[in-house]
Computed example of a mutant assay.
Amino acid sequence: MPDRVRTTGAGRLATGTAWALLLLGLWLWGREATDVPPGVFAPTTGDMAAVGRPAAAELPPQAEPLPDASPQRLEIPGLGVRASVVAGSPDVRSAAGPPSCPQPSGSVTWHAAGTGPGAAGAAVLVGAADTGTGPAVFHRVGALRPGEQVRVARADGTVAEFTVDDVRVPARDHFDADQAYGPRRAGRAELRLVTCGDFDRADDGYPANVVVSAYLTGTGR
Rank of each mutant, 00 (worst) to 15 (best):
A189D: 05
P183T: 00
G205L: 04
G9I: 13
G157L: 02
R168E: 13
T17P: 01
R53K: 14
Y215M: 04
P65N: 07
L125E: 10
L193K: 01
R12G: 12
A202H: 13
S94V: 10
L13W: 09
R93N: 10
N209P: 06
A49D: 07
V159A: 06
A136K: 04
L26T: 03
A49T: 12
D35V: 12
V141Q: 07
P183R: 00
T115M: 02
E190W: 01
V164P: 11
T163L: 03
T158G: 03
C196M: 02
A208L: 06
V169Q: 15
A55E: 15
T217I: 03
P43E: 13
A33N: 10
A186P: 00
S213R: 15
V212E: 09
T34K: 00
G52K: 07
V81W: 09
G132W: 01
P98T: 02
A18T: 14
A95E: 12
P65D: 09
F175H: 11
A18C: 12
D130W: 15
F138D: 02
G9D: 08
A202E: 15
V150P: 07
L66F: 02
P170K: 07
A69F: 00
P207T: 10
V124Q: 04
T15W: 13
L23N: 03
T158R: 15
L59Q: 11
F199Q: 15
A120F: 02
S94Q: 14
V126R: 00
V212F: 01
S105A: 15
N209M: 06
A112G: 06
A180L: 03
G187C: 01
V124K: 04
F175R: 11
A96I: 02
V137T: 14
E161S: 10
M48D: 15
L23G: 11
P67V: 01
R4Y: 10
H139W: 13
M48A: 15
F175I: 05
T8G: 10
G9S: 10
G220K: 10
R185C: 00
W110D: 08
W110F: 01
L13A: 14
L79I: 06
P135F: 07
L216D: 04
G132P: 07
T131H: 07
L125T: 08
G46C: 02
V137Q: 10
A42N: 09
G218F: 01
L22Y: 11
P67K: 02
G16M: 10
A63Q: 08
V194N: 06
V150W: 04
T133R: 12
V124G: 03
L125K: 09
A69S: 14
V36M: 02
G114S: 08
E161G: 03
F199R: 15
P2T: 13
A87M: 08
G118C: 06
I76H: 10
E75N: 11
L74I: 05
G132N: 07
P77S: 01
C196R: 01
D165M: 01
A83P: 11
V211S: 05
